[in-house]
Write a protein that binds this DNA or RNA. Structure first.
Lengths: 149, 149
DNA sequence: CAGGATCCCTATCGATACTG
DNA sequence: CAGTATCGATAGGGATCCTG
């Protein structure tokens, strides 16, 4: 067991040379654009963003506490932060009414609504395939469990 | 400046009572289902998952290092982890060829491809609205900057 | 080649307290 | 009501080294 069955280093070296001489794989996508898209999706697909989006999509124009009550597990910190970010990206408008009991309400912009529509596909996919995924997970875990046991 | 202009506590109290007596907002969505969907989307919308999905969607059946080379910024740790998770959820298959230089390749399942299709909508949305978002961000930051300055 | 194990750091998030 | 500020825990993720 103390002998190496194969010269791994030589493989690595050969691979390295091949990689250097090989032409780069066709990069059809502008990396900068891809980075932006990735970043946008990353933010947009955020757990809280999705829930806020859903809430405003279903119930229209809401105040801070109304949204908070619709998403029980969110802390005010995360809600504030999420709303700011969504406002920054133009997904919703924040309107402050200068009255003595402060009154602020939030409403989706066209952009926000369009995002909701785009996300609908993923949402439906998740709903439709939920049990398939659960089964896949159970299978995987069962196999892993057998190996460990 | 030392006097409170309004009795905030009374407002809070009135609101609290109103909330308790008000009927609960119509909860059309099964919260358990929503939690699952949220979780699935949360995992699926992960940065690396998306990139791996895209890579396999475009280039078909790939080996570990081929994927790694297609996603330059990923660490092997994250790649391994992402692949395991995707395998666990049934998005891809992992095939080990028992040869001396280890050879493992990954390929999307039907489920994986269907997810790619579902995500297409969001991807297109992000592409189409990228500049709108960038402008919105710039505007927001400009306004914020003015306030601070 | 494909990946496991380890260390370590930072970004994130929740809870709490305070304010206009 | 609608936030801001601060602190502490913790998990995500990178860098590095090691192995079959």
């Amino acid at each position: 067991m103390s002998q190496l069955p194969f010269a791994w280093d030589e493989i690595a070296e050969a691979k390295r040379i091949r990689d250097e001489t090989a032409p780069p794989p066709n990069e059809e996508i502008d990396p900068k654009l891809e980075a932006l898209v990735t970043q946008i999706i990353g933010q947009v697909a955020d757990k809280w963003t999705m829930l806020v989006l859903e809430e405003l999509e279903e119930r229209g124009c809401l105040r801070f506490t109304q949204i908070a009550r619709g998403i029980p597990d969110i802390s005010q910190k995360m809600l504030t932060q999420t709303l700011r970010q969504m406002e920054r990206e133009g997904l919703l408008t924040r309107t402050v009414h200068p009255v003595v009991p402060p009154h602020v309400d939030y409403e989706l912009t066209d952009l926000g609504h369009s995002l909701g529509a785009a996300f609908c596909g993923v949402w439906l996919w998740a709903e439709e395939n939920m049990d398939r995924i659960e089964r896949a997970r159970a299978d995987f875990d069962a196999r892993a469990g057998v190996v460990k046991a």
